[in-house]
């Protein structure tokens, strides 16, 4: 049987969605939102709909926000956030690959994409978590937010 192009990325997207579900599902509301996200993610890939994948990712993000507001730990929030980004990226990659290649072979691209993106996002999560755990004088949330907003402004300035 010939593997369907996009199957590797699609499976990885579902796995990342399930990670978000388990990590962020600390209450009924966040679990329900994450569950809806995972179901929409599967549906989006089934009908090759990028909009449905976006909706699924938004639902996973909502679950993450709810979990954070209900007292989830920093590590939990960051891991769930990274997994949500991965689920969103992999699902879009699966749709994109299938649209580009159809039944043509594409497994090496998928494996490289899954490994490379996981490394990048995972690295960013690890670095952010370690930075948070550094023994530096405590920053108020407002100061931390100012730093983040400054970073956003800097990123926006990188627009070509």
């Amino acid at each position: 049987m010939i593997p369907r192009t996009g199957a590797v990325c699609g499976s990885a997207a579902l796995a990342a969605g399930v990670v978000t579900l388990f990590v962020a599902g600390i209450s009924a509301v966040s679990t329900a939102a994450a569950l809806v996200g995972v179901v929409l993610l599967a549906g989006g890939q089934l009908i090759q709909s990028g909009r449905l994948v976006d909706l699924a990712s938004a639902s996973l993000f909502l679950a993450l926000l709810v979990a954070a507001l209900q007292g989830a730990t920093t590590t939990t929030v960051l891991v769930a956030g990274g997994a949500t980004v991965l689920a969103w990226t992999f699902a879009h990659a699966a749709i994109d690959l299938y649209a580009d290649l159809g039944t043509a072979p594409g497994t090496p691209v998928e494996l490289t994409h899954v490994a490379g993106t996981t490394g990048l996002v995972g690295g960013a999560v690890v670095v952010t978590t370690l930075l948070f755990q550094l023994d530096v004088p405590p920053l108020s949330p407002l100061a931390l937010a100012s730093v983040v907003l400054g970073a956003i402004a800097l990123t926006a300035a990188l627009r070509r």
């Binding site: 507001l69 929030v77 980004v85 990048l120 996002v121 949330p141 931390l144």
Partner: peptide
Amino acid sequence: ALVAVGVGLVGQVPALVLLGGLGVTLSA
């Protein structure tokens, strides 16, 4: 990332602000 930072500020949740930092890193 901006939404996460905003919600983190309103709800006094530093983890969400940090999540915004993760978003900014990936956006960069």
